[in-house]
């Protein structure tokens, strides 16, 4: 093996010129030293524009179903390659699997993946509470993850049918006996992260709900429209 400087090793790994041994060695170094992890991330970011030049190819028929089957297979397998200092997600995956099964089978795989990718942008340790919002038929319609500072990621699990002149509004009750407070609007009708200042840290069994309101949000600043889904928060076991 040629003697290389650390920046050279990082570039070789990122560009794809390194051996598997070198990749493993760098991963170990990165796990122990945040500066190295950061340098790798920076190097990756330098080249990411090239990945964006690839064609967008249609996914083959049955892609999500085949993936769903693979995910189900693996859910039961102990995560034996996870280092000891990493949060064990087995319990979470078990729950997600149940949500997945409760969803319509045709969208089942994508629901799971949206949830995973939603998660991947927030660190597990930072999530204070998680709530699964259910509709009046008991089906999961949204996943709410709230951080201590009330940054709240809302992942829709079904495409809601909202009339064009209406908007989805997300609410919570920071105090169980107090009024609901708006966390924000889902104007594009898609999942998003909301931020709001001045609320206390979310707590166990805090209520979250999504209602349909006139465009621009509730005129009274309290929920007025039909409830699309609601749920009580749980504290993740991590």
């Amino acid at each position: 093996m040629t003697k290389r400087s650390l920046p050279e090793l990082i570039d070789d790994v990122v560009v794809g010129l390194a051996s598997e041994e070198d990749i493993a060695r760098l991963e170990t170094l990165a796990a122990e030293n945040p500066d190295i992890a950061f340098a790798i991330a920076r190097a990756r970011q330098r080249f990411l524009a090239l990945d964006e030049t690839a064609d967008e190819l249609p996914l083959p028929e049955g892609f999500w179903e085949r993936l769903n089957a693979k995910l189900d297979d693996r859910t039961e397998v102990p995560n034996d390659d996870t280092p000891g200092n990493v949060v064990d997600m087995a319990a979470m995956r078990g729950k997600l699997r149940r949500w997945r099964l409760s969803a319509l089978s045709s969208i089942a795989a994508s629901v799971a993946l949206v949830a995973v990718l939603g998660w991947s942008t927030l660190s597990r340790q930072d999530v204070a509470v998680i709530a699964v919002l259910l509709n009046d038929q008991g089906e999961a319609v949204a996943l709410v993850e709230a951080m201590e500072d009330n940054t709240t990621r809302v992942t829709l699990l079904e495409q809601a049918e909202v009339p064009s002149e209406m908007v989805m509004q997300v609410w919570t009750k920071p105090e169980d006996t107090g009024p609901p407070v708006s966390l924000g609007l889902l104007e594009s009708g898609t999942s998003r992260t909301l931020t709001v200042d001045g609320l206390p840290t979310p707590h166990l069994l805090q209520l979250y709900e999504i209602t349909t309101e006139p465009a621009g949000g509730s005129p009274t600043n309290l929920p007025t429209g039909p409830i699309l889904g609601k749920g009580l928060a749980k504290v993740p076991v991590i």
Partner: peptide, 25 residues
């Protein structure tokens, strides 16, 4: 890759780069 993302979601640290960079890596 999707299976690995699923299994390793807990390892992703946003302070060390973007989710996109992580996924493509």
């Amino acid at each position: 890759t999707f299976v690995m993302i699923w299994r390793r979601a807990g390892q992703f640290d946003p302070s060390r780069g973007t989710a996109k960079g992580w996924i493509y890596t």
